[in-house]
């Protein structure tokens, strides 16, 4: 018996001696802090149980476009979890740190969760905002971040464009005119979605915040209980925030295995549960069904359906000289 315990202790000591400490950097977009706080904790525990290694995941939230530029400029991200595929495409093209076919490496085009664009208004909806058309009324102050720096803002912009296009008689010209009027009502353009939420919720500026659904629900539940309402417009866009391992960095740092496992974890039942609890729409049908009551019913269109994909949408709308530049009144 004594010998058995000795061997057990020796084995434990040996295992402990082999255990590693691994650090990952997840470069993400603004409103994902709470989601990835929960994911990081759960994954670290799971990985520790599975391998004995201790994983610490650091986060670096910021506007999605800015984050992509930081990675291109040399920020050593092991994984990127950004707001839109275009930003990871930019990393692939400009710095070649991820392969061009990165989106095929994980299920659902490497988007383990989705979201939508909704409105957050003040309690009682004093300006009577119900749909996109209400945002261009005189006297309505709109808060949305700057599409030049924020992935969320691009989804907002495209959601508004698509809905304008779907109006009876809607054309690209009428959609452009609608966006021009809408941005005349924008009081402040923050660089990221979380900043815009701060502007609307904490600084009490504006009548309506165009926001990620997850961010609007979060604000409703945790930042201003009883002070806000979520308004689901008649139509919105299906926002698909993608994730990818940054191969060149993980190879250099020897973290490829754990980085892949980290993103795979998002697709597991446990990961999908965390996704839903943080107000993102899970891909897993069973988990989505369990949380269906938490999400408003929305008629959603995809970026591929209306804009022909991110590359085309970026070129037409957000590249220098695109429609966003064209509709600019002098910036407020």
């Amino acid at each position: 018996m004594k010998r058995f315990f000795t061997l057990l202790l020796a084995a434990a000591a040996f295992t402990g001696a082999l255990a590693k400490e691994v650090t990952l950097l997840n470069v993400s977009y603004d409103p994902t802090r709470e989601l990835y706080n929960a994911v990081n904790k759960a994954f670290s525990e799971q990985w520790k149980t599975k391998t004995g290694d201790t994983v610490t995941v650091r986060q670096s939230p910021g506007g999605s476009g800015r984050q992509a530029r930081a990675v291109i400029d040399g920020l050593d991200a092991d994984v990127v979890t950004l707001a839109l595929a275009y930003d990871i495409d930019a990393i692939a093209e400009r710095s070649r740190q991820v392969p061009k076919d990165w989106q095929k490496r994980l299920p659902e085009n490497s988007t383990p969760y989705t979201s939508a664009i909704v409105f957050l208004v003040r309690k009682g909806n004093p300006k009577g905002i119900k749909d996109w058309g209400d945002l261009v009324r005189p006297g309505v102050a709109v808060i949305t971040p700057d599409p030049k720096t924020s992935g969320g803002a691009r989804w907002n912009y495209l959601a508004a464009w698509g809905c304008a296009l779907h109006q009876p008689g809607g054309t690209p010209a009428s959609a452009k005119d609608f966006l021009a009027k809408l941005f005349k009502n924008v009081a402040i353009r923050d660089t990221g979605a979380r900043g815009a939420t701060t502007t609307f919720v904490q600084r009490e500026i504006g009548d309506v915040l165009i926001a990620w659904e997850n961010e609007a629900i979060l604000a409703l539940k945790e930042l201003g209980e009883g002070k806000f309402e979520v308004v689901a417009p008649s139509e919105s866009i299906l926002a698909e925030p993608p994730v990818a391992v940054v191969d060149k960095v993980t190879k250099k740092r020897g973290t490829t295995e754990v980085a892949k496992a980290y993103l795979d974890f998002l697709y597991t039942d446990a990961g999908q549960e965390i996704v839903a609890k943080n107000h993102y729409r899970p891909r897993n049908a069973a988990v989505a069904a369990r949380f269906a009551a938490d999400f408003p019913k929305l008629k959603l269109f995809t970026i591929d359906e209306v804009f022909g994909g991110w590359a085309k949408a970026h070129k037409e709308h957000f590249a220098d000289g695109g429609t966003y530049d064209q509709i600019q009144a002098p910036r407020p």
Binding site: A141, A187, I188, D190, T191, G195, T199, R203, E204, I205, G206, P332
Partner: peptide
């Protein structure tokens, strides 16, 4: 008041 808040926020940003 809204305009003051806007200016405050702009200052902050």
């Amino acid at each position: 008041e809204q305009q003051v808040k806007v200016l405050d926020r702009k200052n902050e940003l």
